[in-house]
Design a protein around this nucleic acid. Sequence first.
RNA 1: GCGCGAGUGGCGGAAUUGGUAGACGCGCCGGAUUUAGGAUCCGGUCUCGCAAGAGGUGGAGGUUCGAGUCCUCUCUCGCGUACCA
Length: 787
Amino acid sequence: MASLRRQYPFHLIEAKWQKLWVSGEVFRAFNPGEAAPEGHPFGVRHAGARPESLAKYYILDMFPYPSGAGLHVGHPEGYTATDITARFMRMRGRHVLHPMGWDAFGLPAEQYAIKTGQHPRVTTEENVSNFRRQIQSLGFSYDWGREVDTTDSGYFKWSQWIFLQLYNSWFNPATNRAESIETLKYPEGMESKEERRAFRDGKRLAFVSDAPVNWCPELGTVLANEEVVDGKSEVGGHPVVRRSMRQWMLRITAYAQRLLDDLETIDWSDSLKEMQRNWIGRSEGAKVRFPVSGAECAVEVFTTRPDTLFGATYMVLSPEHELVDSLTTQEQRVLVEEYRAAAARKSDLERTELAKEKTGVFIGAHAVNPVNDEEIPIWIADYVLASYGTGAIMAVPGHDERDLEFARKFDLDVRAVVKAPEGVESVGFVGEGESMNSGFLSGLPTAEAKARIIDWLEEKGCGERTINFKLRDWLFSRQRYWGEPFPIVWRDGHHEALPESELPVLPPELDDYKPTTDGDPPLARAQDWVNLADGATRETNTMPQWAGSCWYYLRYLDARNGERFVSEEAERYWMDDNGVDLYVGGTEHAVLHLLYARFWHKVLFDLGHVSTAEPFYKLVNQGIILGEDGQKMSKSRGNVINPDVVLADYGADAFRLYEMFMGPLEMMKPWNMEGVAGVYRFLGRVWRLFVDEASFTELEQAQVTDGGQGAALLDMIKIDESITDVEPTPEQQKVLHACIKKVTEDLEGMRYNTAISAMMIFVNEASGWEIKPRETLRTFLLLLNPF
RNA sequence: GCGCGAGUGGCGGAAUUGGUAGACGCGCCGGAUUUAGGAUCCGGUCUCGCAAGAGGUGGAGGUUCGAGUCCUCUCUCGCGUACCA
């Protein structure tokens, strides 16, 4: 291997420039008011202009979790694309901000700590160093002066500070935005301190709730809805069960409509927007209250088809519904209790797996259909979810598949109330049509029937127009050590915010990172830390990993600021107009990070801390890179490509070029090492286009004989004699300009693969020129430079 | 089931507005040079045909002077989501 002749001395070239880029802070961006040091390239690029007078371009990568496994080839795909665009934008005169950092809180470091007793900080620091080394060896043009690490106390101080902003705010429906909790008005007649406190705590954007949550016994922690996939934890695939626990929640539901509406204002792919829309899950309909026969109460349901009210022949409550206990009759009690117990035992996974067969029990009570005063039976069934709508439905088996299945199984009334198109059976028809058998609604098309019945319900006081969302509030606490502690203490059973002056709240030192035997979070082990002198105790839960990643793009703007999370000036300059101009990352964060970050940003916007309503204007998802066998890369398949190995054989430039040449950025595509060799050969042809062959041979021999390394050797290289100061021929001009046009347009459209192919065409042509005009080749190098 | 996306040579992929299908690269075949080569250079490479020519973008129709591109139906694969009332 040692004798293998390189196409060109990439090891010398890349080492030389990468070193210079870091030591000379060549890609440093300057904040308003800052001055570039004498001799810094910024002065050359922008002719001494003040930073704040320049048009900015903020180009962001999703920062990685620095795992022990190191970088895989998927990371640099997006990073290379943004790097090329960053360099392109710089060449076009934009003042580019292109930072990198570490999303370093997380489960793997903690689990390693539990196993070995080694502090997660040690593991994390090692991993960060390795990631930084790998990323720098790829030659990216990051401004390392703005590097952030979410586990650094200088960083998470501000994560905790933002939490306090949420804690100290409420969502005012009248203004449709968050406001200081101080503006909250108490209801008429609410005088007692206790009542007022409970009312206030119930309105905060960060609040404590004792609701059923997703508990993962294997991980020993609760998880957000977004972190549960098919009833299993997104991380590790462990079973998740429902369990009632006291937890911190963030009121993201208050922002449901704005999160939905503002998707219209940003440039994301349709599929990504659609994923967020589906997750938010807006549906318009009505709430209808059915009085219970012989009782004072009513069962409230949500329906998107109030026009089918005449077809409601029974009702179903979810097994967890609060009225089940009081409404169940003596005769049915045993059956009902058995059913509820069975439902409670099932994990979410089992509940969905067993979904094919409808089950349920009659509770003995009846409700009155307000529209025709008919008595209809009330059942419980686990096909009705406690967590959606009101946790209860009116069943219209005539026009709902699930209700029909249930009605047939239990022999309940089925009534057709919507006319189906010609040739379609009315029963089972779920589309829109003319109402029938529906009293005063009969003959009306669905839309009108809906409007009419809602008016009628509102008039009678037994229902109203409603919009319902699937989005749930965000479960924000975790039973872990390696996360941000909450800036919260408890006193007499009530929570209190710590003052800003107490930030950052550092986690205590521990010997054992496991939860306690009572199931308390690991932080509860540190009794000295938990118990304060004044009798208060600290909150022992920690924040989820998303806390750090929710706002890191803001910290980059002013990463070393000790006074504020970001200075107002820096925020206004870099976020001006569009926020982040280009954000590239994987699609796996569609309803996690990207939704959470939008939510936090809107809260900060409402409170006046940031100047845009949306954080990320344009977002591009890079596709997944598959293994050489066309399968997803995984350790168990043994098809993982290590970038270090590729770099050793072909160098960073070939690696970068290959990742871009594989195909369109957004597409999924398989790795092929022969393809790397192909672009490597292309770079060799570029080299030979310029370099005197004899001088390169000399350099190669110099290395072999004296073992010499280092940049100085490169001075031996001479430019080839065929390159001269002549005017290009019209034909040569044409070839060059076709290349300029194609590369420029493709870079604007982020079509890196075809830009590279255009440069290959140029090189193929130019290789045949006996006399090569210096200016023509120099211009070509400008095109190649960003890559 | 629903939503989104994609089907083009042996492979990755080009074809930006409906206008020479297969750019560029890999692989393969042949040649030159070389002690050697994961080196370089030259030529070839969608299918059928000696050729002229004919056919060809998952499948079936359609619009058009002209369709990979537009329309209708249909098949396959990927991603997301799922008893959301």
